[in-house]
Simulated scan of single mutants.
Amino acid sequence: MKRPGPLLTLLAGLLFGVFMLSLNATTGERSSPSAFASPPPAATTTAPPAPSTAAPEAPSTAAPEPSAPVPDDAEYAGRTDDDSAAVAVTVRDGRAIAYFCDGRARESWLRGDVAADGGMRLTGRDGDELNAVLRQGKRIRGTVEVGGREHAFTADRAKKPSGLYRATATVREARIDAGWIVLRDGSQVGVLTRDGAPSPAPRIDPATGAVTVDGQRLTARPATP
C-alpha cells in the first residue's frame, strides 16, 4: 500500500494558502474605512450683515427762527380816563418802570417786562399792578390798580422834556423820595414822601431837573428800569 505523502503535502499547502487569503481579506475589510461613514460636519459661517440701503439723514437746513423784536426804548406819559391821576411808563431793553400818582398823596412805582407784542404786566408794592399793551410804539393803553382801586389810562409817547423823573436824597436827616410826571402840555404831577409821609411835590425844572426841597437843592433825573 502506497503512502500518500506528496498528495497530502500538496493538499495541506492548498488549504494553507486558502486560509492565508481568507485572513488577508478579513484584515483588509477591518482596516479600510467604511463606505457608509458619516461625512464630517460642514463648517458653518455667519454671513456679514447686508449693508443698509436707507439714505443717511440729511442735516437740517431750516434757518433758525429770528429772535422776537424788543420794543423800542421810549417814554410814555398820560392821564387816567377819570382824570384823577397821571401815569408814566419808561421802556428800556424790554423792561419797563411805571409811576402812578394823583399829585397829592397816592402814588405807586411798578416794574416788569415788556413782551415782544407790546404786552406788559408790571407789579408794585401791596399788590399794585399795571396791565397794558404798547400799541405800535406810539401809546400805551391799559389799567392800573393801586390801593385796591382800578383806573383805565392812556399814555402817549413822550418827547423831552416830558416823561418820568425821580429824586432820592436825605435832607435834614429825613429820607426824601419824590416822583414827577411831566406831561406833553408842560403840566406836572408829583408826590414827595418825607420819611414815608406823602405830600404834593414841588415843581422841577424839566430842562435841568433842578428842584428845591426843604431849602436844599436836588436834581430829579429820568427814571429808568
Rank of each mutant, 00 (worst) to 15 (best):
L23Q: 03
N24F: 01
T26Q: 14
T26V: 06
G28N: 06
E29K: 04
E29Q: 09
R30M: 02
S31V: 07
A35E: 07
A35N: 07
A37K: 13
S38H: 09
P39Y: 12
P40K: 00
A42C: 02
A42M: 04
A42Y: 02
T44C: 11
T46Y: 12
A47M: 10
P48K: 02
P48S: 00
A50T: 13
P51F: 06
S52A: 03
T53I: 04
A54L: 12
A54V: 14
A54P: 06
A54Y: 08
A54H: 08
A54T: 08
A55Y: 09
E57S: 15
A58Q: 13
P59E: 08
P59C: 10
S60A: 15
T61K: 08
A62E: 15
A62G: 14
A62T: 15
E65W: 06
P66T: 07
S67W: 11
A68L: 15
P69D: 11
P69I: 08
P71I: 14
A74K: 04
A74L: 01
A74Y: 01
E75R: 05
E75N: 04
E75S: 08
Y76W: 09
A77R: 11
A77I: 11
A77Q: 14
G78F: 07
R79C: 07
R79N: 10
T80M: 07
D81Q: 02
D82W: 12
D83F: 08
D83I: 03
A85M: 09
A85G: 09
A88H: 05
A88C: 15
V89E: 00
V89L: 14
V89K: 01
T90Q: 05
V91C: 13
V91A: 05
R92G: 02
R92I: 08
D93C: 13
G94N: 07
R95H: 13
A98N: 01
Y99H: 02
Y99E: 05
F100A: 01
F100Y: 05
F100E: 00
F100M: 00
G103F: 10
R106C: 10
R106L: 10
E107C: 03
S108E: 02
W109A: 01
L110D: 00
R111C: 09
R111S: 14
G112P: 05
D113Y: 14
A115E: 07
A116C: 03
A116N: 04
